[in-house]
Design a protein around this nucleic acid. Structure first.
Lengths: 258, 258
DNA sequence: TGCAATCTTCACAATCTCTTCACCCTTTTT
DNA sequence: AAAAAGGGTGAAGAGATTGTGAAGATTGCA
C-alpha cells in the first residue's frame, strides 16, 4: 500500500516535477493547485503527508496550515512546508502555524524524498516523537535535530552536537533553573562527577552564538549557585528584540570576515 | 500510549485550534466547554494534565481549579491555566488556587506544547512539590524559589540566596514581628543570638531592591527593639502604590545606567 | 597521514555573595 | 537634655562561584 501524499502547489511545472519524482519514489501523489482545493482534498483523501507551498493563490500556505491543524480530521497529518527563497521569516512562521518541517526553494529533489520519508517514519512510529527527530519550537527559537540547527530570530544557526543537546535540555525546561547535575545527566549521560567546567565552556559557546552581547546574557541566564535558566521573550517583548539581535549578528559576521 | 489531556475552554474556535495542535503533538485530547462538564470529565477519564481556561461559564476556572485540588481523585493532576490578558491579578489568583503553570492569551501554540511537555515531565519526576520549589504568593509579592526571584509589583527582582530566605521567612509570618533570633534560626540555621549585624545588612539589601525609598521603609518595617515585620498592602491600597513603586524602579535603573 | 572540527582541561581573571567593621543616625531611657 | 541602646550606612575584604582564553586531547574524514 503506497503512502498517500497531497501536494499543494500552484506552479504547474513545479507540481509535475515534484509529483513525478515522488511517484517514482513509490508514493501515491494527489495534486491541488490552490488552498481551497487543497483543504477539500485533504479531508477527502486523508493523506499520510501534506506537501504545502507557502505562496498560494486564494488561501496562502500559512493560513491553510493553521486550518488543517484546527480540524480534527486533518490535525495529525504531518505537513512539510515549502518556502520560497531563504527568507527565513517564512520558516519561523511556518513552524508556528504547525508545520513539521520545511524546505527552501530551490531544493534538491532527493532531499525532498528523504525528508518525506523521515516525516512519515516519525509520524508512524511514535506519536510523541523522541527528542532525536522532533522539531521543537518556542517562538523565536526553533530546534531542528536532524541538522543540529537552531533557527534563532529567523536565522539558522549551526550548532555542534553538544551545544544542541544543551540548548535542547534548557528549552525543554524553559523558564526553570536547570542544575549542573541535571544537565550532566541529560546531555552527557553521567551522574556522579560534577564536571561543571565543561558545561561552562559550552554555555559560553551557545552564548556567543545566540546572545547579542555574550557578556551580558539576556536569554541564557546564570542563576548563581543554582544553575542555568533559558528565558525566551514573550511575544510582546519580541518586537523590540528582533532588530537588536539582527544588528548584533551583522556585527559579529563582519568581525569574522575581517 | 498517548498522554491524556483535558482541555476545558468555552470558545469553540479556540478549543479546536488548541486541541488540533496538541493532538498533532501526540496527545489524546478530551474537550469540555464549561466547568461542570470539565469537572465531571476530569473524574471520569483521569487525564495526565488539565488545560483550564480562566473564563468559563457556569463554574469559573479558579473555582474549578480549587475544586479539582480538593478532590483527592484529581488533586495530583497538573493544571495549566490559561488566562486572558496579562492581568497579574489573574496570575496571582491562579497560583493561589493551585495551578502549576499559567499562560496568557494570546499565546504561541508551540509554546503551549513545550509547557505541557515540561509540566508532564515535572509531574513524572517529582510527584509533589517540596517546600523548596513551591511558589509562595501574597498579592503584590510572589516568591519563585526556583530562580531565587521575587515578583514584586509585576516585575521580577533577582535575589541572592540569603535575601530570598530572609524574605521568605518574613513573608511566611506576614504582618507579624519576627525577632532576630528567629530569623537566625530560620535563615542561617544557628541559635546563638550574636550576629544581628549580618541580618541588618541583608535587610538593607532587600529594602534597596524592593522599597521605593529605602530610607523610609514602607513594607519591611523595623520594630524597635523587637525585630522586623513585613507589611504588604491590601488590595484597596494597591492601586495607589503601583505607580509609586514603578516610578522608583525607573529612577533607580536610570541611576544604575549612568 | 594530515587536517579540521569538536570536545575537554587548565590556569587565571572577573564577578558575586556574604561577612565584618567603623561610624553615624534615631529612639528610648535616665 | 544627655547618655545609652538599637538600628542604618558605606565600604572593604575574604571566599566561593562563574567566565575567559588558550592549549591539549579526541574524533572523524579526506
Amino acid at each position: 500500500m503506497k503512502p498517500g501524499i497531497l501536494l499543494i502547489e500552484d506552479d504547474a511545472d513545479m507540481r509535475d516535477l515534484v509529483a513525478g519524482h515522488l511517484e517514482h519514489g513509490g508514493f501515491a501523489v494527489h495534486r491541488a493547485e490552490d488552498g481551497i482545493k487543497g483543504q477539500a482534498l485533504a479531508m477527502q483523501i486523508n493523506p499520510d503527508l501534506i506537501l504545502l507551498d507557502l505562496m498560494l493563490p486564494k488561501v496562502d500556505g500559512l493560513t491553510l496550515c493553521q486550518r488543517l491543524r484546527r480540524d480534527e480530521r486533518t490535525a495529525s497529518i504531518p505537513i512539510l512546508m515549502i518556502t520560497a527563497l531563504g527568507g527565513t521569516k517564512d520558516k519561523v512562521s511556518g513552524f508556528n502555524s504547525g508545520a513539521d518541517d520545511y524546505l527552501t526553494k530551490p531544493f534538491d529533489l532527493e532531499e525532498l524524498v528523504v525528508r518525506v520519508k523521515a516525516l512519515l517514519r516519525r509520524s508512524e512510529h511514535s506519536p510523541l516523537a523522541s527528542k532525536h527527530n522532533e522539531i521543537l519550537n518556542y517562538g523565536c527559537l526553533t530546534l531542528v535535530p536532524e541538522r543540529f540547527e537552531a533557527i534563532w530570530f529567523d536565522q539558522p544557526v549551526r550548532l555542534t552536537h553538544l551545544e544542541f543537546e544543551l540548548l535542547h535540555c534548557l528549552l525543554q525546561r524553559h523558564g526553570q533553573t536547570v542544575s549542573p547535575s541535571l544537565i550532566l545527566k541529560e546531555v552527557w549521560g553521567y551522574e556522579p562527577d560534577d564536571d561543571i567546567e565543561t558545561i561552562r565552556v559550552h554555555v559560553r559557546h551557545l552564548r556567543t552564538k545566540l546572545e547579542p552581547d555574550p557578556r551580558k546574557p539576556r536569554f541564557i541566564k546564570t542563576i548563581y549557585g543554582a544553575g542555568y535558566c533559558l528565558e525566551l521573550p514573550s511575544d510582546e517583548q519580541l518586537a523590540d528584540l528582533i532588530p537588536m539581535v539582527q544588528e548584533a549578528r551583522e556585527r559579529s559576521e563582519s568581525a569574522k570576515a575581517s
